[in-house]
Simulated scan of single mutants.
Amino acid sequence: MNGEFKLVIGRAVREIAQYYSSEESFAIKKGKHLPNRGAIIGVIKDLRRVMFPGYFGSENITDTAPEYFIGNTLTEVYVTLKKQIETALIYQNTDQISEEEISERAMEICKKFFGRLAEIQQMLLKDVQAGFDGDPAAKSKEEIIFSYPGLFAIFVYRIAHELYLMDVPFIPRIMTEYAHSRTGIDINSGATIGEYFFIDHGTGVVIGETTCIGNHVKLYQGVTLGALSTRSGQQLAGVKRHPTIQDNVTIYSGSTILGGETVIGEECVIAGGAFITSSVPPRTKVTVKKPELNFKGPSQEDVWE
């Protein structure tokens, strides 16, 4: 390394180090740690094995007692998840709550969470049924469970949503962003989603934090359920800013529906490419004006020799 390049490196070091000391985001709170992303992804994978036994692991529950497999796996999940929840709560702690109290709170969160797992599994089985009923290309429910990115994103959302409701910091977002990175489907853990939910194809779907979705709703790729404007930033935290989609609605690809006061009534069909910022009455078909195609004869440059 020549002297000139050493000077360049030295200047870069000083400038970056200056940001370390002045920028709050770079300063992890002293003596605290953020949750371990790898451990949280491991929790997702283990819970997936429990919810859909035999699909994502080597276990064969027909050869062994299912209670043993479930109990052993959930025990491992509990140990990991409780530790990560404690880590998140300690990092977020601004009220000087003792670590003993935080540990008790983490235990209570885990108690409620594990108490909900059987109901989450039933919801997921209904989502599988919705996928099978709604996709003529599906050859079996097994194919949907094993292969469909939409179901994976929904599975992660339903797990993360329970922790979101219990005000667990960091972890729900880590979970849903993991699914986002895997599938291209971005479901905020705060959204409320009913039964028999199906996302077909999926890539590019965005569902915002305060979205409310009813039962038997089907979305196609590229659908955005978003906020009308986010220029106010943190001033809108906690305000309903995403739409409500009622029961039995189908929204085709590329549609955008925005605004916290926007309600799409039950049994509506929204055509692909629609842009909606106001409510739609029940049993309405929203269409987009077809583009006009102007056919012209080939120019001289287009004629093949």
Rank of each mutant, 00 (worst) to 15 (best):
Q84S: 01
E119I: 07
Q92E: 15
V128M: 09
T87C: 14
D95V: 01
I90G: 04
L125E: 14
N93C: 11
A88P: 01
I120C: 04
C110Q: 00
F114Q: 01
C110D: 02
I97T: 10
T87R: 10
Q129N: 07
G131K: 09
E104L: 11
D127S: 08
L125H: 14
L124E: 13
M123T: 09
F113L: 07
D127F: 08
K111L: 08
E104T: 04
A118D: 14
L117Q: 06
N93I: 09
L89C: 09
Q121V: 06
T94Y: 12
A88N: 01
K126D: 08
R116I: 02
E100R: 14
N93M: 06
R116S: 12
E100Y: 12
L125K: 13
C110T: 03
L117H: 07
V128T: 05
E119C: 03
Q121H: 10
Q122E: 14
A88I: 02
I102Q: 07
F114T: 00
Q121G: 12
L124G: 05
I90H: 02
E104K: 09
E104C: 00
R116N: 05
I85C: 03
Q122L: 12
L124I: 08
G131M: 12
E99K: 10
F113G: 01
Q129D: 10
E99M: 05
Q92T: 14
D95I: 04
M107K: 15
I120S: 05
I90Y: 04
Q122D: 15
A130I: 07
F113P: 03
I120A: 06
G131W: 11
S98C: 09
L125C: 05
R116C: 02
K126F: 00
E108N: 13
G115R: 04
Q96N: 15
L124H: 13
T94G: 15
R116P: 04
K112A: 07
D95G: 08
Y91D: 07
K111P: 02
L117C: 00
I109V: 15
I85W: 02
I97V: 13
L89N: 06
E99S: 13
S103D: 14
M123D: 14
T94P: 00
T87S: 14
I102L: 11
A130W: 10
G131T: 11
